[in-house]
Amino acid sequence: MSAETATEAGAPVEEHAPRWRVLLSAVMANRLALFGLVVLGLLVMAAVLGERLAPYPPNAADVPERLRPPSLRHPFGTDELGRDVFSRVLVAARVSLQVGFIAVGISLAAGVLLGLIAGFYGRWIDDAIMRVTDMLFAFPAILLAIAILAVLGPGIANAMIAIGIVYTPIFARITRGSVLSVRERVFVTAARSLGASDLRLVTLHVLPNVLAPIIVQTSISLAFAILSEAALSFLGLGVQPPDPSWGRMLAEGRGFVQQAWWMGVFPGAAIFVTVLAFNLLGDALRDALDPRQRSAIESRGLTA
């Protein structure tokens, strides 16, 4: 050890709050994103409490009360069997969120894994994976989901798998694209020069640096997955009667557009608000995670 002091090189240039706090404060500062966050919170509450929050059991028919317009007793009215639309919309939030999270979970796990392998190893593995995802991309999403369900049979679990498969290529592609650029960064070479294994390189050095676009895509995909579930249930391929789902309720309401507009409008509004919330959140995350936007002003001031 030499006589030189430990502060020979001086103190760090700047201090920074932890990443998640920066992210959270960025989202909080954005009013639209805050709206998304609040909606998401309400949805989670509805999904968890469900029946306990609903004024009526969602599947309880009350034929004399059928097709009542919104009133104090039935804020969203009743359907053709006299079931309370508000209770059904509330309880259906669970299905929507479940399908959203599980389906997106499937595509996230599969897509990121495939994207990491394709991007990191390149060559024929990359070609093989990317050709398959290109093929999946060539189908319209909903048609592909219908085709998969035709094979697996209708039902909520299969719908999740189908939606999961449909959205896998997007994650694979986004991950691969980011991996390709991160793979070339010097710190990956540096880790390699230290003798790091591929597993270590991928998990510690590549993956944490490709997360930003994946997080953004996740929140946007959640919106799409919920829409897909609604569409599949609308077609009778997802949630089976009598259980409520926004898509099913929309389908059932279709026959009563003239007599009972509330049967379709309220589930439709629920879908709209949920999808909007996830999209707003996704946009805010995109802005917050993009360092070029985050510190544009600061960096301009300092690069003299």
Binding site: E14, I297, E298, R300, G301, A304
Partner: peptide
């Protein structure tokens, strides 16, 4: 001078 989030940067 530049306005930054951390305050005014006196560059020149």
């Amino acid at each position: 001078r530049f306005g930054t989030r951390r305050g005014a940067a006196h560059v020149v």
